[in-house]
Design a protein around this nucleic acid. Structure first.
Lengths: 162, 162
DNA sequence: CTTATATAGTTTCAAAATGCAACTATCTTA
DNA sequence: TAAGATAGTTGCATTTTGAAACTATATAAG
């Protein structure tokens, strides 16, 4: 078999993994995976600020803002004006949001376990370790490195569309 | 640091990897990454049929059809009616398509090397091996397994949108 | 032979997502 | 008190989406 491009393979795995999950979360909790992603990021970083968050979501700022609005409207997230700088909002998950996460997380875990079940435990650990290493690099030095090597591509991340 | 959901991590890595690549291919070759994906899949499987292809692309059939049309219009792919069954088209990359691939592939390889450069050679090999194992499983048994466990979600893969 | 059904692939179209740019509001500096 | 800078939101034109309808060929049944 021909060796497929690594990026294609990654994107393809991500789609196979996220796609079914998306449908399940939608049908069980009426929750869009994008919303879930934001809910989790906020939950894991109480008091996180919008700009930080939107860098992590990998969505556009405007998209993140809209998702956030919908979470707030749904009572899953609340925001507080920063007392030192009223331009900032500090974001927190509400009790309802927390409750929802607590229902959603086991399903995530279940799916994750199923996906990884084809790997031995050693492989799973190794895979995780490698993914962590990769994410760290991609989040930090990689982007700088890219800009340096390919100055032709400025501007922020464009839709990858897998 | 909190352990992030594996699917989020994967999607996030894929986006970081594919996003920049998308912009580069666009600016250097005027080629959309989706088109490139299809071009490669056809190139690697001369005579492949539309339905097979669209399963591999992970796009909707209609999207695949549109991308294919654009490749054909651009003279990068050609199609022939199957002599045994006129409902099928057999797809082939043209000389122009091949030439384009030959210009694009080195860039892909370069990017891929850069992305993986944070890993040791052993890790790279291990990572690849694990990815292969995962893709195989996800393409085959996994989907069946999912349907069995979660009958509530029928229908074909929905946009994962990461 | 004629009708029914299945399969391959394309096209249409309304709804949703995208992303730039303009906008509001606050803060900082001078 | 005016001029930027920063945080976040919203408007809106464009693009993307995906389900459904459609065309065309093949196969099966009566």
């Amino acid at each position: 078999m021909l060796r497929r491009s690594f990026t294609y393979q990654l994107a393809s795995i991500a789609e196979d993994a996220v796609g079914p999950a998306a449908r399940l979360f939608e049908s069980r909790f009426g929750l869009d995976v994008h919303e879930l992603r934001v809910l989790r990021l906020v939950g894991d970083q109480p008091g996180v600020t919008f700009t930080t968050l939107s860098r992590q979501t990998k969505f556009e700022r405007s998209a993140t803002s809209r998702i956030l609005s919908s979470l707030i409207k749904g009572g899953l997230v609340r925001r507080e004006i920063d007392e030192n700088d009223a331009r900032h909002f500090r974001l927190y998950v509400t009790a309802d949001g927390q409750a929802l996460r607590e229902r959603a997380d086991p399903l995530s875990l279940e799916l994750e376990t199923l996906i990884l079940s084809v790997l031995s435990l050693t492989e799973q650990a190794e895979f995780r370790r490698i993914l962590d290493k990769l994410s760290g690099w991609l989040d930090r030095e990689f982007m700088t490195e890219l800009q340096a090597r390919y100055p032709e591509m400025a501007g922020p991340a464009k839709k990858a569309r897998s």
